[in-house]
Simulated assay, not measured.
Amino acid sequence: MLGFFQTSSRAAGRAAPFAPPPASPRAPLQPAPHQAAALKMRRDGARRSPSSAATRGTARPGLPIPRLDARLANPRQIGELSMELYLAGWLSFEESSLLGFQPELHPEYDRTIGALTGEPAEPDRPRDFISLWQDRRAFELRHNPGDFVLHQRIERIISVLIAASSSFSAVSAAA
């Protein structure tokens, strides 16, 4: 078998032919021996780390949902809330990314999106994020009906925003 470079090819000024890397001792898609036990444990569901619970979007025991009235929140507060919900395990990373992306917080918003829409950025103006996400759900169902994963993520975001708002209103009514 030839090596990676042939001296005669280099001497003649031609490019050296490609030689495949040496064969590995195990099959290409087979996990390493130390990884096989961890993969089997995850498939069995016997042990899961707290970080895997956060990525699945399920709440970890003992961590309350952060409180914020999502019907009177501004984009800055929603960006912070999305990170708190992710860290508490209420939203997955993808759901938190969807919720936390607030274009009005970008410094070039007025030159780009604002110039196209004719509306300047108002990152401190309160708005009803629950109705905004319900409108987005209706839009996605109408224009993107086949993306079930996105629909589930939006449903999860709406339910968590409602839960955060209801816990906020319950505490503020008691005070």
Results as ranks from 00 to 15, higher is better:
121 A>W: 03
126 P>G: 02
126 P>M: 02
69 D>F: 13
119 E>S: 05
126 P>I: 00
72 L>T: 10
62 G>C: 11
105 L>Y: 06
116 L>F: 12
100 G>F: 09
72 L>G: 01
84 E>P: 00
124 D>S: 08
96 S>V: 11
99 L>N: 04
101 F>K: 12
95 E>N: 10
66 P>C: 07
114 G>D: 01
105 L>V: 10
113 I>D: 00
74 N>F: 09
100 G>W: 05
128 D>W: 11
85 L>C: 09
75 P>S: 06
88 A>V: 07
66 P>N: 11
118 G>E: 06
101 F>Y: 14
114 G>I: 01
84 E>H: 12
126 P>N: 03
66 P>I: 08
74 N>L: 05
85 L>K: 07
117 T>Y: 00
112 T>E: 04
117 T>K: 00
82 S>C: 04
120 P>F: 02
117 T>W: 00
124 D>M: 02
130 I>R: 07
76 R>Y: 11
63 L>W: 07
104 E>G: 12
84 E>Y: 01
126 P>K: 00
113 I>A: 13
66 P>K: 09
71 R>K: 13
69 D>P: 06
64 P>A: 15
86 Y>K: 14
93 F>S: 13
99 L>Q: 08
74 N>Y: 05
105 L>A: 03
85 L>N: 06
62 G>P: 11
66 P>A: 01
122 E>C: 00
95 E>G: 14
71 R>I: 07
91 L>W: 10
95 E>M: 11
100 G>Y: 07
69 D>Y: 12
89 G>W: 09
114 G>F: 08
103 P>F: 03
111 R>I: 02
73 A>I: 03
112 T>M: 09
91 L>D: 09
